[in-house]
Simulated assay, not measured.
Amino acid sequence: MTSNNPALSKALPESVRRHNRAVLLRLLYPDVSLTRADLARASGLTRVAVSDIVAELLCENLLMEAGFSHSSGPGKRGMLLRIDPEGRNVIALDLSTPYVFRGAVLNLMGQVTAREEIPLNAGKKVPLSLVGELAKSLIGRATRPIMGIGVSSPGIVSSNGVVDDATNLGWLQTDLAGYLVRQTDLRVSVNNDANNEVLAEQQFGSGQSDILLVHLGDGVGVGLLVAGKLVTGCNHAAGEIGHVVVNADGPVCRCGKRGCLESVLSVPKLTALIDRQPDDLTSILTEAGGVLGRVLSMPIGLLDIPRVAVLGDSRVVNRVFLSAMEETLNRTVASDFRRPVVVDRSALGDDAALLGACATVVSDQLYPDTGV
């Protein structure tokens, strides 16, 4: 018998072993416990095939035994199996934080075991050697075999890990993945920071399959999941809304256009304005939240997304800002048949980009045939 789930279907003969390993890992990740018989039924694989693959994964410390099942029927109870969270380390790099590169060693459940940072010189092109230095230092602190390196980068990132454009770092057509592979000889996954963060929200946060995540930092980026699938666009630029013009008479943006969303809504712009006009804090954040709510009303209305999660400095992304954003968004898209959209702060906090980088590395192992 074979599974009716296409995601768990058997692969072609030339890749059957690799595919079927991933099938079993997907059934167990992140914290599901199943017996060998359970895995055979769920995957459609034979019990012999499951036992063979499980023995291999146990030897590799990717799986661990978790005690006997609590079966009420006759017969011998089966041994439960689950992912060993300490079976591998993942190196995660966050290049999206202003003035600093952050990195961490994580286990397979996204728990951080070591952290490091490298400060940056503001306003200068960032050399790739700093990324390599951070990665190598973290590799030296790993205590388990390393599954791979995940990187959250600002800007537009192609599917092969080339950073096409990251204005804040001064990078154009920069082969970040290739550089790190050459430096470390490890598997490397490089993605846009907001895309990684929305994957982290799904994997380690709310678990929702339809969500829009906004990251407010030096710029404004969006990650979007629809039916559990990451939306990247044909140019890998989906969610790059920071340089969409929202006010033709607005301030000149660093990209050369006038009135880009980033020119009025970036964290440095808003915090500088608050510092100059502290008595106007509430009105500044209310207006900023309203602007973002109006900007997002079109994609929310088009795709019927139920929740918007926001990441950013708590001086900006606070109750006043989020309430204004939610009120404006729901007023703009309101209809008799639509439930109100929930706007809140992501619970993942400052580690969202690191967790997203970890999630993409693990995903490469769980979906080796699809590139999910």
Rank of each mutant, 00 (worst) to 15 (best):
S3D: 02
P6V: 05
L8S: 08
R17Q: 12
R26T: 04
L27V: 03
Y29P: 06
L39P: 02
R41N: 09
A42L: 15
R47F: 02
R47T: 12
D52M: 10
E56M: 10
L57A: 04
C59R: 14
L63W: 01
F68V: 14
H70C: 10
S72P: 15
S72K: 09
G73N: 08
M79C: 11
L81G: 02
R82S: 04
D84V: 00
D84N: 15
D84G: 03
G87A: 09
R88Q: 10
N89F: 12
V90Y: 06
I91T: 00
P98T: 09
P98W: 14
V100R: 15
A104F: 09
L106N: 01
G110K: 08
A114C: 05
R115F: 05
E117M: 07
K125N: 11
P127T: 05
P127M: 07
V131L: 08
E133H: 13
L134A: 11
I139V: 13
G140I: 12
G150N: 05
G150I: 04
P154Q: 11
G155K: 09
V163E: 01
D164M: 15
D164Y: 08
A166C: 12
A166Y: 03
N168D: 10
W171Q: 03
R182F: 04
R182A: 15
T184H: 09
N191M: 13
D193K: 12
N196K: 07
V198H: 06
A200K: 05
Q202R: 15
F204T: 02
G207L: 05
G207M: 06
L212I: 13
L213E: 03
L213N: 05
H215A: 14
G219W: 11
V226G: 00
V231M: 14
N235V: 07
G239D: 02
G239H: 00
L265T: 00
V267K: 04
L270Q: 04
D275G: 08
Q277P: 05
P278E: 09
S283A: 13
E287T: 11
G312M: 03
S314Y: 08
N318D: 13
V320L: 15
E326M: 06
E327Y: 03
T328G: 01
T332D: 06
P340C: 13
P340M: 12
V341S: 00
V342Y: 00
A347R: 08
L348G: 06
G349Y: 08
L354F: 08
L366S: 09
V372G: 00
